[in-house]
Amino acid sequence: MSSPSPASLLSVRINGEPVQVAVQPHHTLLEVLRYQLDLIGSKQGCDKGDCGACTVQIDGEPQLACLTLAIHAEGRDVTTVEGLATGHGGVHPLQDAFDRWDAAQCGFCTPGILMSAEALVRKTPRPVTDPEVRAALAGNLCRCTGYTKIIDAVIDASRLMHTDDETADGAGQAPTRPAAAAQ
């Protein structure tokens, strides 16, 4: 057996809960989340920073968990997709919009995309635009959707989140699509 390096005790807040866990200093945050803490929502598509499937938020900023050493998260706030809906009654408006738009095909990229998208809509004080979504999500690869429905869903969710008196049934509007409208 490979000789283990001395473990460090990591103290971190994960999805709002304080967590203490002994981690190998060379293990990534992704490994610790997935294989030690059973937070399997963050996915591993490449393990080297190329695909974005492992995107989590550290202190509110999207970060690649596969490129982040677990010990780097010491004392910080980590949010994974499992914590996305906290404070939103169990379903975040982005999740609801992705569901209505069928924006998750295989869904493997989706947790990472949701974590990047949440930071975008949170920081934008108005509904987001197509180019903004594309720029904010450029580090997240999706191989199934051609991205179209994902962009539709993020724009739709951001509109709903900025419509104060929106009923809570999640019946969002279709984003205007000039060519489709021409039909």
């Binding site: 937070l39 399997i40 929502g41 963050s42 996915k43 994974t80 997709v81 499992e82 996305l84 809906a85 379903v91 999740q95 992705f98 569901d99 069928d102 998750a104 295989c106 869904g107 493997f108 989706t110 947790p111 949701l114």
Partner: peptide, 11 residues
């Protein structure tokens, strides 16, 4: 889809 987006689907 929803359980995939909540991160609870087991691949």
């Amino acid at each position: 889809a929803m359980e995939r987006m909540r991160g609870i689907t087991r691949y």
